[in-house]
Design a protein around this nucleic acid. Sequence first.
DNA 1: AAAAGAAACGAACGATCGTGCTATTAATTG
DNA 2: CAATTAATAGCACGATCGTTCGTTTCTTTT
Lengths: 200, 200
Amino acid sequence: MGPQAATTKGVATRELILDRAYAIACREGVEGLSIGALALATGMSKSGVFAHFGSREDLQLAVLDVGGQRFGEAVLIPALRKARGLARLRSIVAGWYDWVRDNHHGCLIMAAISEYDSRPGALQDRVVTLIHRWRSDTARAVQMTIDTGELRADTDALQLSFEIFGFALALHQDTRLFDPQQARAQADLAFDRLISTHLP
Amino acid sequence: MGPQAATTKGVATRELILDRAYAIACREGVEGLSIGALALATGMSKSGVFAHFGSREDLQLAVLDVGGQRFGEAVLIPALRKARGLARLRSIVAGWYDWVRDNHHGCLIMAAISEYDSRPGALQDRVVTLIHRWRSDTARAVQMTIDTGELRADTDALQLSFEIFGFALALHQDTRLFDPQQARAQADLAFDRLISTHLP
DNA sequence: AAAAGAAACGAACGATCGTGCTATTAATTG
DNA sequence: CAATTAATAGCACGATCGTTCGTTTCTTTT
């Protein structure tokens, strides 16, 4: 993580900084983060903020991790409490859709994909890791639904994950660019129809 | 457009600048454009570049328009030469998929959505206009396919457009983040399956 | 309470940002 | 070719960028 974080107060301050940084990055993007703006948002000095991370890039990496963690806590963890199969898959998708609705300034991770998809480096690597993990989790949930017999045995789990991903991306954009409620209705319908065409 | 562009050379220079600006914005994003970098890329002075637009925002607006125009020329125009109906719709989608494949540094417009979806202002307005136009064109092509009887009469054109949009977005990201060929195969399959479930 | 160590500040750095101004070229018009 | 006007360069401005360094304040440990 940071260069040091030995004191309890040190850890607390770091979390405060990352909380504000996450909020800023949701609006301005991870690339829109600046140490100066972050110092202003926390009431600290620039050098005070900087000392917690050692470089801007390390700060950005930490913010990406915060984004991944919050997304996981809001979407994946609740779904894991549902029974394996269609119930859990539905929970994942509904949770994802809710997440898009409730984060009015956009999902940090989904925006970060666009920011770094043509920019090789440590930040792109981190984004790829986060997305790949999430995609794997989704595909696993689909596979379990096949295993429980709630989807046809010849269903392609990766293909379904791809399409679900697409619906979520379209929802994410339409929510902010056009009518959020219509977008949600279309995303729900898209998923329901997708499932219905793969029923046993 | 710019403050002035009275001379033939003035117009040519403006187009040169916008061409370089488009290339930079494809990689760094519209928000990553800077007058200094653009001056370096064109061999001009900063003030020379600046004088063509009057402000950075006007430059960014012009670049967005270039992006919209090039996308239209590459995807929409060729499709309009096909017969109304499924042939044209297939051409639109295939052209869109090809566009994603051939623009190795990403589609400027699709990236701009993420950049401005939480940032009200003139740039967001322009992005919304461009996307709305494209979505309308797509929906119109779907509606024509319904009218020709190649899709069921109870098909929801806007719903189909939403899902097609999602597939393109997922393709755009997977192309750069993961395996381009697998992504293309999944996007093709997704569209084919979508059409097949709405056949009369 | 004293010593040690971590956390935060303040000032400064070179760079770059967008944007004015004033010349100086270049192109168009008469 | 001369007169006019547009296009470009040069220079400077205030701001902000990420980063470094030395000092001071606060926590933790002894």
